[in-house]
């Protein structure tokens, strides 16, 4: 049992991702075509006549029937071609390649920050349920999640940039006079360190601080609450009581037994949190002029830029499928109860 059972489970899980990817391709296509409006008319510009709109429609491949358009989309996709974004005029692959690291850097920094704060808080609260520490934790993390991110973001900008002036202007990943480090990973923090450019690292970190804090605040609550909740449940369970009765050290019980078991729901939450963060990204990027994939998608959506919306959603989908796979695999590895059936 055990090893091979888990391996085959993971393999099956990988296979299972395929139908959902196909589902995504279809849903994306349907959704984008359901968007109201005629991108051809929009991009023909202010002074276009019927004829030039028709020309653009042909150029965009929007003159065929829906099945024809779908077939064209799928065949292009099979060749790794996501089409050309009509709003930026560049291949969607290129746009995503350039913008994805910006979004990921922001999201991951926010997530790490949130985990670093939320997990200890949650454990702390769980070990002292209903004490003032517990209540304070609840109130603090809940306050963070209770405000729309764009409001928090704008409020931070107002206070920390406009009034107190401790952060640089909120205009993207670097201030106006700094230049991006040579690209290796696309994460400015890492790339600048790779070439030993501490000045750029500082500049990038300064720009990143406020949006990352905004994002982290938004997800403190689900993480901390889930940690507390599942820790409580585990701490109240029989095997911990047994461990306690056996006189095992409290630290060992807390971290080795309880936390490991409590991780399961936290992991499930993590996937959700990540997804929420990428959603929140859209709004945070707009507030901080962050050149990420979320702001790209919003703009594309508003102008019915089909190729861009499809490409965006598809790359997100692949990202999420991979993330969920990882979570499931971790779940399998951590939880002895899952998968024994094999």
């Amino acid at each position: 049992m055990g090893g091979t059972g888990k391996l085959s489970l993971i393999g099956r899980r990988l296979l299972q991702a395929v139908p959902s990817l196909i589902g995504i391709v279809i849903v994306t296509f349907v959704l984008t075509r359901a968007l109201p409006g005629d991108p051809a008319a929009y991009f023909a510009g202010p002074a276009a006549d019927e004829q030039s709109i028709a020309e653009i429609r042909t150029a965009l491949g929007l003159d065929g029937s829906l099945p024809e358009q779908f077939w064209a989309y799928v065949t292009d996709l099979a060749q790794g071609d996501l089409g050309v974004s009509i709003s930026t005029g560049r291949p969607v692959v290129e746009e995503i390649f350039e913008r994805l690291p910006a979004s990921l850097e922001l999201t991951l920094t926010g997530l790490l920050l949130a985990i670093a704060i939320a997990l200890p808080l949650g454990i702390l609260a769980a070990t002292r349920p209903n004490s003032w520490v517990d209540h304070l934790c609840r109130v603090v993390v809940t306050a963070g999640v209770s405000l729309p991110v764009f409001f928090t973001g704008l409020f931070f900008v107002y206070v920390f940039y406009f009034v107190v002036d401790v952060v640089p202007s909120p205009i993207g990943r670097l201030d106006i006079f700094s230049l991006a480090p040579p690209r290796v990973t696309g994460f400015y923090l890492i790339d600048s360190l790779l070439v030993g450019d501490f000045q750029t690292f500082g500049a990038a970190a300064a720009q990143l601080a406020l949006p990352a804090i905004t994002m982290a605040m938004f997800v403190l609550a689900p993480l901390a609450r889930m940690t507390r909740g599942s820790m409580l449940q585990v701490l109240g369970s029989e095997f911990i009581r047994t461990a306690n009765a056996n006189g095992l050290e409290r630290r060992t019980i807390l971290y080795t037994y309880a936390f490991r078991n409590a991780l399961l729901p936290i992991l499930t939450t993590l996937g959700m949190v990540f997804s929420f963060m990428l959603g929140a990204n859209v709004l945070v990027e707009k507030v901080f002029a962050w050149p990420g994939i979320g702001s790209f998608a919003v703009n594309a959506l508003v102008v019915s830029d089909f190729a861009a919306v499809q490409g965006f959603v598809l790359s997100m989908a692949i990202l999420f499928v991979m993330l969920n796979l990882t979570i499931d695999v971790l779940y399998t590895l951590i939880d002895p109860r899952v998968g024994i059936e094999g």
């Binding site: 991702a17 849903v27 996937g271 990428l278 990204n281 859209v282 959603v313 997100m316 989908a317 999420f320």
Partner: peptide, 15 residues
């Protein structure tokens, strides 16, 4: 999974 694969806010926007 198909729903989850969308960044949720963006899916809401799309809908």
């Amino acid at each position: 999974d198909t729903i989850m694969a969308f960044p949720l806010f963006v899916l809401a926007m799309g809908i």
